[in-house]
Amino acid sequence: MKINDLESRPPINLDDRQSLNIKVPELELPHYRKLGRTDLKVSCLGLGGGGGISSADTLYAFDRGINYFFYSSDLHHYLYSSMAGALKKLCQRGSAVRDRVVLATVTYIKSPEVALAALLDQFLELGIDYIDVLFWGWIGTNDAAAFADCLNLSNDLRGPGTVYQRTIEKMIGVSDRLKKMGAVRYIGASFHDLDLAHQWLDSSLLDVVMVRHNVAHRSAQSQVFNCLDAQNFDRPGISTFKSAGSHSGALWDIPEGLPAGCWIPSVPDLYRYSLSQNCVDVCLTGMRSPAEIDAATLGIAQGKLTQAEIDYLGIYGDLHRKRLQIQDIPTEKLIYRS
């Protein structure tokens, strides 16, 4: 071995490698937005397969600028599978548009032991290289311990160079995209318990938080949305679901007692209600047809609701849940639209 003089190399400062990626906050209701701290650019309207949308109509949604798709390979798979063909076309290996799509998938099996099996199902069914956001689904009141175990997998699951990426590679074969992105890019959770959602808001293990929110169920506003700082670019991404529906019925149906001529919000108005809240990035919808997609897209183009509209829709939601009597509502709070 040669023993020559060596040059002294200064130690690499890891901080120097990190570029500051500060972006100006969005003030209006832009169609595309950054999903919290992730690097994902998502449409504000997301499309899930729970409404049984066809693959042709899913592709129509993509053509109309919707790029956030939510897919389940276990619970309600029979509904979701009708959009699988479109997701394959958009996201499978070799797709020319894969980098324009944000594919979110969910597993409702809350166990670290079966994470690999759930992932493999999704990879094989959709023929994909990677998942953008893997959601742990339906996190309820009794799931605190199991959910904590699941989130403890995050660092092994997400990003390139992880054990799950290598294991998926062994199972389905290597690809440049899989190697570059990892099997899963980010971790999300769909909460049915808002206390748990609140508890995990600041966790580095959770990148995207999804909660139920609509005019009749507004607790997420105080327990989740308003706990976040819109100027904090390190906050988790926020998605809502059930924006137009409630166990008390479809929210576009006229609630009992609402005076004639009062504003009946359309489904797109109900989406706008969620998207007008602090830090809500995506409103996940169950649109089922091109007509619904067009209406929603046009509705969103109107921008955020005004504070008066938001207040009115709160009253409207309370009437839906029979929490208010019409005589208790100050008349100046009502909005009349023909």
């Binding site: 071995m1 040669k2 023993i3 003089d5 060596l6 040059e7 002294s8 190399r9």
Partner: peptide
Amino acid sequence: TDEELQVAGDAFRLKHRLLGSAQTL
């Protein structure tokens, strides 16, 4: 290989601050 040896040897010397040949000897 000789190249692998050289790289590892140089890395060892850098780690132990043995930059000069005289210092190393």
